[in-house]
Nucleic acid binder design. Sequence first.
DNA 1: ATTTGATTTAATCAAATGATTAAAAACTAA
DNA 2: TTAGTTTTTAATCATTTGATTAAATCAAAT
Lengths: 206, 206
Amino acid sequence: MAKMEKLETADSSTEEKIKEAAAKVFTQKGFAATRTRDIAEEAGINLALLNYYFRSKEKLFDLVMMESLQKFLLGVRDILNDVNSSLTEKISQLASHYIELLKVNTDLPLFILSEIRANPGRLEANMGAKEILLQSNFYKQLEATTKKKVDPVHFLMNIFGLTVFPFVASPLLRIIGEKSKTEFDALMDERKKMIPIWVDAMLKSI
Amino acid sequence: MAKMEKLETADSSTEEKIKEAAAKVFTQKGFAATRTRDIAEEAGINLALLNYYFRSKEKLFDLVMMESLQKFLLGVRDILNDVNSSLTEKISQLASHYIELLKVNTDLPLFILSEIRANPGRLEANMGAKEILLQSNFYKQLEATTKKKVDPVHFLMNIFGLTVFPFVASPLLRIIGEKSKTEFDALMDERKKMIPIWVDAMLKSI
DNA sequence: ATTTGATTTAATCAAATGATTAAAAACTAA
DNA sequence: TTAGTTTTTAATCATTTGATTAAATCAAAT
């Protein structure tokens, strides 16, 4: 007998509720500190349902991590490979894209980085990211601009350092700078304009 | 009866062995993923000894975290408050200091940041760091240089982003850049010279 | 040598936790 | 309705894990 589809939005299905709760709790507390009971409670479901739908804590985590990586990487391919934009324009677009993304998902990068450190094996499975980045038009423009003088990887570090690091360090920075979430976000908005200018200045300085 | 001191170096005492093992394991895996048995094994001691000397996993962790924070903050006070050095010189010294520190303790910042996120309460107890930083001669020079144009916190973010972020992201960067640990460290050494030049260029650009 | 206090060990406990099971409930197709 | 299927629940298991205990060992002082 064929299974019947229920008339539910993806958001309200039990499976989706669990996945969203898992994403929230895993991202906040990390794999090891997360109890499957935390996820069940957050999702408002019976604990056994988690295993009914996802088999195990680890499988559910792998799913969440995969989607987190995609959230972080997807949506920049277009920017990286636009043949009609200059390097500076790409940097501007990348900065804006990541700042908008991370204002809403502040602890996404810290989650990804700390879980990869805790379990480096998980990364290798997933990544075509290296190829996407290193064979992109963006990277070629970067190589052409820096040519021979310095490793273009330096400027990858710089761009991501300027853009992503404030979010990674936000728990500390907000205290040190005495900023509310709103003020912090406003600072990040300012950076959308400044980062491309700064990177330009850095590129010219070498 | 007065307790007799044993003839031991601090390094070989059981207590010190446990603390070093704890620092290693906690830093690598984080609080939640660390088993007290892991620490005992790493230290080569019986599990009960850990509780004999440190009462609990949490007390031992707090100790390790406090020393980690000190390791990260101590040794820059002199740099920050040197009235005879220019802003650029301070940036150069800070970059060199942190790059040397983090070449040896690569996952120190990721450890600190992810544990603070997991348990933000832990931070407040410890910090005079904010005052040390914001009242330093360094910060005053930064304010004077950027005056009104942009929040000097932007440049704190920039300096730490350029210096510390590569280490935070090193698990990813080493894969993307296809670098060995040695090559990665060499890149970081290059940055000691470049970061002050870059920050200068950024300061002039605003 | 004996005593005394500090250190270390093996064994064990109680709670937490990931997972399973069997039964109940809800739902669908006939 | 009824039979069959999927979804959900309550109860329970087995293991892991932080911590404790009581006994053994060790080092120094008398």
